[in-house]
């Protein structure tokens, strides 16, 4: 009960946040000049004013903004995200088709970055002045400083062209037939380069953070107490220090998740990864407002859910939060 109540409160806040984001997204998207009809007419190479007006009526774009917003929210509550102008398919179907690929990519990169970053940071903290420490700093900062698309292209050139270890695009080999296990392996092979690219930005963040936090914790009084009990250095570092040092890492992970989704858009484009990133990119170009709004809505849900999870993880790690 003690843990349920704050959780419910958090969920209520999250729902309110979600509503605010929906309204904000809607307004922002409609502030951008041009709409789906403008884009369509541009593709057609021009049209009569009558046809344009007709199209606007058909897509409901002739009504004023508050009415549109109200209708949109009313439909959304019923789980209807509208019809994509460009694909002529329900937005929800399009998103559900592309979402698994994005979740796979983002989650892999997320855990890869946290795991590799934290491990490197902890090793570096135990030998603050070693060559290994400086090496980690240089490599992880390069990953951080380089633009994502550049890192992606370099990895593509290196490991797909010069050393053709990994496939260069997509999520599956076209026309691939095999058992479930073989298919899984095929997907994993496609996943390596995009995930490494996306993770590379964040490895530096987590390794620096874990290192600083570990150094701080290792100098604290309770670590001296742990040593004074005769505990081995392993137990002192990996039990007493680590649990404390992870707290800032978890906080950071929650904060950074939104940026990770943003990074996924670029990575998916570089590697032709069939996720919602590509879908979002195209929907912006084509002024496909229902689709774009649907994608933004779903990304918001993902971020809110991750924040709830990190919040909960934090509660488990730190008994002081009640």
């Amino acid at each position: 009960m003690k843990t349920i109540l704050p959780l419910l409160k958090r969920i209520a806040y999250s729902l309110m946040l979600l509503l605010a984001v929906i309204v904000l997204n809607f307004v922002l998207v409609h502030l951008a000049p041009g709409d789906a009809v403008t884009a369509m007419v541009g593709d057609m190479g021009g049209a009569t004013p009558e046809l344009i007006a007709e199209l606007r009526v058909e897509y409901g774009l002739d009504q004023n903004l508050p009415t549109q917003l109200f209708k949109y929210i009313a439909k959304m509550v019923r789980g209807d995200l509208g019809i994509s102008f460009t694909h002529n398919l329900p937005v929800i179907d399009l998103i559900l088709e592309h979402l698994p690929a994005t979740i796979l990519l983002v989650m892999t990169a997320f855990f890869m970055a946290i795991l590799i970053g934290t491990v490197l940071g902890i090793i570096a903290a135990q030998r603050p002045n070693s060559l290994f420490n400086h090496l980690i700093t240089v490599i992880s900062l390069s990953g951080y400083a380089a633009p994502v698309f550049w890192t992606g292209l370099m990895l593509l050139i290196s490991f797909s062209y010069y050393f053709p270890i990994f496939p260069s695009f997509g999520m599956e080999t076209v026309g691939f037939r095999g058992t479930f296990l073989e298919k899984t392996f095929d997907v994993l092979k496609h996943l390596v380069l995009p995930a490494v690219t996306l993770a590379s930005i964040y490895v530096a963040v987590y390794s620096r953070l874990a290192r600083a936090s570990m150094l701080d914790v290792l100098g604290s009084d309770y670590i001296r107490t742990a040593r004074s009990k005769g505990l081995s250095e392993k137990v002192v570092v990996y039990k007493h220090a680590l649990k404390n040092a992870l707290l800032p890492v978890v906080t950071m992970a929650g904060l950074q998740f939104a940026q990770l989704i943003a990074g996924a858009v670029v990575v998916e484009t570089v590697f032709s990864w069939p996720g919602i990133g590509q879908l979002a990119f195209n929907s912006i170009l084509r002024r496909d407002q229902p689709l774009l709004l649907g994608i933004l809505f779903l990304s918001t849900i993902m971020v809110v859910v991750t924040n709830l999870i990190t919040d909960f993880t934090y509660r488990i790690l730190d008994p002081r939060i009640k």
Binding site: Y222, R224, T225, A226, D318, P319
Partner: peptide
């Protein structure tokens, strides 16, 4: 030790 407030590990019972 001198500092009872910080000498125990905050995350263990």
């Amino acid at each position: 030790f001198q500092e009872p407030m910080t000498s125990l590990n905050p995350v263990f019972s």
